[in-house]
Amino acid sequence: MTHHPEPPIGEDDLQALVDGRLDPARLPAVQRYLDARPDEAARVQAFIAQRDALRAALAFKHAEPIPPRLRIAHLRVARRQAALARWRVAAAAAVLLLAGSGLGWALRGAVQPEIAALPMPAPDRSAMPAPQDWPGPDTDLAAWLERRLGEALSPPDLEGFGFTLKAAQVLPDSLGPAALLRYADAAGTTLTVWRGPTRDPVPRELRCADVPGGLVAYTWSDGQRMHAVTAALPRDLLRPIALAVERDLKAPPPGAFLTSRARRPCDAALG
C-alpha cells in the first residue's frame, strides 16, 4: 500500500514489537519479515517470554504493602526535624560570627600585638584577609561589594519596612568572602542581612530559628550561598522583611548569568 520504499527491518523494530511500542504503520512489514524468518520470530518470542518472566519474578515486590517509613508524610516530618536542627546550628553560628567579628573589630588595636606574638604558621595568617568596612554613602555600595565578593550583591532596600542601611562589611570566611549588611530603624532596632558561601549544595527553603538572647533569624540557602536575616524582632514582623530580602537577592542582575557562564579558554579543550 505504501508508496515510499519501507526502511529495512532493524533490531529496534523487533525490540519495539516486544515492548508493544512499535508504530502501527510499521507492524505489517515487521510481521512479514518475521513470517519469513522463523529463527527471528523465535528470538522475538524468547524476548517476550523473558520479559514476562522478569515481570513475574518481580511482581511480588510491587504488590507488597509500603513500609511506614516510606510514607511521604513521615519523610516530611523527618526532614523538618533535621532541617530545624541544622538551622539552629547555622543561625547560632551566624550570630556568633556577627558578634565575634564585631568584637574582634572593636578590639583590633588591643589584641593584635598579642596575636602577632603567637607562634602561628605564617601562611595561615597571610591567607586570612581582614574584614573590610564600607566607607559610607559616598562609595557605591553595590560596586564596592561586587569587587570584594567577586559577584554582584545589590543591597536590599528595606526603607518600606522603616529600616535604613547603616553599614556594610565584607568578612573573610573559609570558603570565600561573606557580606554583612547592617540596617537600623527609627527606634534603634538593628537588623542584619548576612550572605556567605556554604558547603551544603542542597538549597534550603526559608526557615526561622529563635536564637538565645531574643534574636530571631530567618535563614535560607540557594545551594551556593547561605543567607540570614537577623533582628531582635518578633517573628511576624521579621518574616515579611526576610521574604522581601529573599526575593530581592534571588533575582540576579541582568547579564550576570551570561558573564558567569562565559567560556574560559580551557573549556573547549575539556569538551
Binding site: 515486590k61 510491587h62 509500603i66 516510606l70 510514607r71 511521604i72
Partner: peptide, 11 residues
C-alpha cells in the same frame, strides 16, 4: 502522586 509511585520504586 509521589506515594502512588512507591511500589514501582521499591520494585
Amino acid at each position: 502522586r509521589m506515594e502512588a509511585l512507591i511500589p514501582a520504586l521499591r520494585r
